[in-house]
C-alpha cells in the first residue's frame, strides 16, 4: 500500500496533527508511571510511601482473593468474547438482509442497550435476576423451578449473560458497517463463477470482515479483562464475581492500600499486554486488509 511520503513540509503538519493525542499520552503516561511506581511501595495514600521492592507481588502470589479474581476474569473473557462476537456477527448478517423500516428498527433496538449506562442496566437486571424477579416469574409460569441467579454458583454466569446482552448489539453494528463496505462486485463475480452461498460467505464475507473482527476481538478482550461496572452492581457473595479490576478498586479505595492495588495493576497490564501481543502476532495468519 502506498503512503504519503513525508517531505520536510509535511513534518510540521504531522506535529500539528499529533499534538492533541501527544498531550493526552503525556498525561496518561505521567499518571500511569506515578500510579504504578506505588506498586513497589506500601503507600496508603496518607503517610508518605516507603519503598518495599517486590514485597507486594510476593503477597499477591499467596493471596487467594487474587487468584479468585483471575479465574473469574478469565471465565468472563472466555465466555463473553466469543459469544458477543458470534452473536454480533449472526445478528449483523441477518439484519443486513432486511430492508427499510424493519432494518432501521432492528439496528436501533440491538444497539440500544449499549447506549444505556452500565449502572442503569445492572440495576434493571438486578430486578430481573431477583428471587421473585422477571426470570423466575417466567420460569414458574411455565412450570419450572426458580433459579438462584445471584447465588454463589450462578452469579458469574448471570454477569456474563448481562455483558453479552449489553454488548452484542454494538458488535453487530460495527459488523453491519463492515458488511456494507464490501463491494457488491465481489459477490456478482462469485455468483457468475457459480459459487454457492456458503462459499460466498466463507470466501468473501468472512475474509473481508477480518480487519473488523480483529479489531473487535482486541477491543472486547481488553474490555472483558477490565470488567468492573457490571460486577460493581451485581455482586456475588464470597468473591464469586470478584474481577481483577474490582479487586484493584477495593484494595485502593476501601482498604486504602494503594501500593497493593498498583502492584495488582502491574499484573493486570501484563496479562492484557500478553494477550494483545499474541493476538497481534496471530493476526498475519488470518487477517487480510486487501483481497
Amino acid at each position: 500500500m502506498s503512503q504519503i511520503k513525508s517531505p520536510k513540509a509535511t513534518v510540521i503538519w504531522i506535529l500539528v496533527f499529533l499534538f492533541p493525542p501527544t498531550i493526552g499520552l503525556g498525561l496518561v503516561y505521567y499518571s500511569a508511571v506515578q500510579g504504578l511506581t506505588m506498586g513497589f511501595t506500601n503507600w496508603n495514600m496518607i503517610s508518605s510511601p516507603k519503598w518495599i521492592g517486590f514485597k507486594n507481588f510476593g503477597q499477591i502470589w499467596n493471596d487467594y482473593r487474587f487468584w479468585a479474581s483471575v479465574s473469574n476474569t478469565l471465565v468472563i473473557v472466555l465466555v463473553t468474547v466469543p459469544a458477543q462476537i458470534g452473536l454480533g456477527l449472526l445478528a449483523a448478517v441477518l439484519v443486513h438482509r432486511t430492508k427499510g423500516k424493519t432494518s432501521t428498527i432492528l439496528r436501533f433496538v440491538y444497539f440500544y442497550p449499549t447506549t444505556c449506562s452500565v449502572v442503569a442496566l445492572g440495576l434493571m437486571w438486578l430486578f430481573i435476576y431477583d428471587a421473585g424477579g422477571l426470570l423466575n416469574q417466567g420460569l414458574e409460569f411455565v412450570g419450572l423451578e426458580s433459579v438462584r441467579w445471584l447465588g454463589y454458583g450462578n452469579a458469574l454466569l448471570s454477569v456474563c449473560i448481562l455483558i453479552i446482552w449489553t454488548g452484542f448489539g454494538y458488535i453487530s453494528l460495527i459488523y453491519v458497517a463492515g458488511l456494507a463496505a464490501i463491494p457488491e462486485q465481489y459477490y456478482e463475480a462469485a455468483h457468475l463463477d457459480g459459487a454457492n452461498s456458503w462459499q460466498q460467505f466463507f470466501n468473501i464475507t468472512l475474509p473481508m470482515l477480518t480487519p473488523t473482527t480483529f479489531f473487535l476481538i482486541i477491543v472486547t478482550t481488553i474490555g472483558a479483562m477490565q470488567t468492573f461496572g457490571q460486577v460493581y452492581i451485581i455482586n456475588g457473595r464470597a468473591d464469586s464475581t470478584l474481577t481483577i479490576v474490582q479487586y484493584i478498586y477495593e484494595k485502593a479505595f476501601t482498604q486504602f492500600n494503594m501500593g497493593y492495588a498498583a502492584a495488582l495493576s502491574w499484573i493486570l497490564i501484563s496479562f492484557i499486554l500478553i494477550l494483545t501481543v499474541i493476538q497481534v502476532r496471530l493476526q498475519r495468519y488470518w487477517v487480510s486488509y486487501d483481497i
Binding site: V28, Y29, G35, I222, I244, V245, I248, A252, S265, L268
Partner: peptide
C-alpha cells in the same frame, strides 16, 4: 493506554 486500569490513573 487502553490496557492501563483506570483505578491507577
Amino acid at each position: 493506554t487502553m490496557m492501563i486500569p483506570p483505578a491507577v490513573l
